[in-house]
Amino acid sequence: MVKVKKFILKNIFNGMPKASDVEMVEEELPSIKDEEFLAEAIYLSIDPFTREFNQTVVGDVLIGTQIAKIVESKSNDYPVGKYVVAHFGWRTHTIAKEIPPPEGILPDYGELPLSLALGILGIPGNTAYFGFLEVCQPREGETVVVSSAGGTIGSTVGQIAKICGCKVIGILGSDEKGRCITEELGFDHYINYKKGNVKEELAKLAPNGVDCYFDNVGGEISDAVIKVMNDFGRIAICGFMSQFSNEPKVTNNSCKGNGSTTVGGLTWEYKEDMFTTAKVPSLQPYFVFKQLRMEGFIVYKWMARWKEGVEQNLKWVNEGKLKFKETITEGFENAFQEFLNMLEGKSVGKALVKI
């Protein structure tokens, strides 16, 4: 018998998640059956979507992606010793029969670390690649603004924008991360929204306006960026981290989500309460008179082209055009604290837990 540790939901997140909302528990797994395999987690990915796509069933394992090593197998397709990336959630061991695409057995990345499969060579990397290139459709010489620019997705978007010949401004919450993206990752400028006025700083750094905006946060920051965009500007909506600290009203903790979307064969449920927003000035006139285009997306929209994104990002990494940053926390028991650190903007690059 294998003893597994896992984080389960005790209370539905109400605003910013709290330590009391989850519990780490143990259970024993049964022996594997024919066609099954046992995978032991090596790295756990710490992602905003664990909060973004709100879980609604108390007792469920927290959603998340991990890299795991196959330690026992009765499956010809998943031999012992291979590494897999999969949506197994926040658990140390998992019994499975198959892993649906785009995840599965990891390819050989040579001397690059395995952890990149959860970052620049995984979901975050493809989110940056497809979300920026397909939605924003950047052109050489344009000005690009990226919010949450210190995270994996934002920092990758900024570097891809530089590869495209754009001027890039990153918005984030610390000078330390600002120096990182400018001095190490090639961004032209950064704005620390905790210190300065975003609109005033943009007027100085982008006097000719903004052409593309890759939005990870929403709220007042996005309000300021959209108001200085040029005619025919393009906005890619990747996330809405500014909403996580709101306090939506939840009266029934066992309620199911009241909305869902299916993309790439995966269905995501969400609750309308989680989208409670602060009052901001109406942006419709800017969209009308500047003829702006804003599009939200989920990366699995490009499931059929998944390999393309990974291979192109890998090529850029090997060429030195794409650099990666990781914040790695040791110990499965520290996963939720790192999750909170990530939501508060304390992590640089990809946030991971090494089991």
Rank of each mutant, 00 (worst) to 15 (best):
I163E: 10
D215I: 10
Y43S: 11
Y190M: 13
K315P: 00
I99Q: 01
S147V: 13
G154S: 09
E326Q: 15
G104E: 01
P17E: 11
T329L: 09
G158E: 02
T262K: 13
E142L: 06
E103Y: 14
E27Q: 14
M303D: 02
P281V: 13
R305T: 03
N76Y: 03
K279D: 13
L116Y: 15
A224F: 04
E247I: 14
N11A: 09
G349V: 12
E40F: 12
T152D: 09
P30W: 08
V58F: 04
G209E: 04
T50Y: 08
E326G: 07
L106F: 03
R51E: 07
S45H: 07
K10S: 09
C164I: 00
E52K: 13
R234H: 11
V84I: 15
E319V: 03
E40H: 14
G257E: 03
K199D: 07
T267E: 09
V310I: 15
F88R: 01
K167I: 10
F7K: 04
M16F: 15
S254Q: 11
G64F: 06
Y78S: 08
G125V: 01
V61T: 15
G265E: 02
L322P: 00
K195P: 01
I191S: 05
I67E: 05
F214Q: 06
L314C: 06
F187W: 10
M303Y: 05
F130S: 02
P138F: 05
N313S: 06
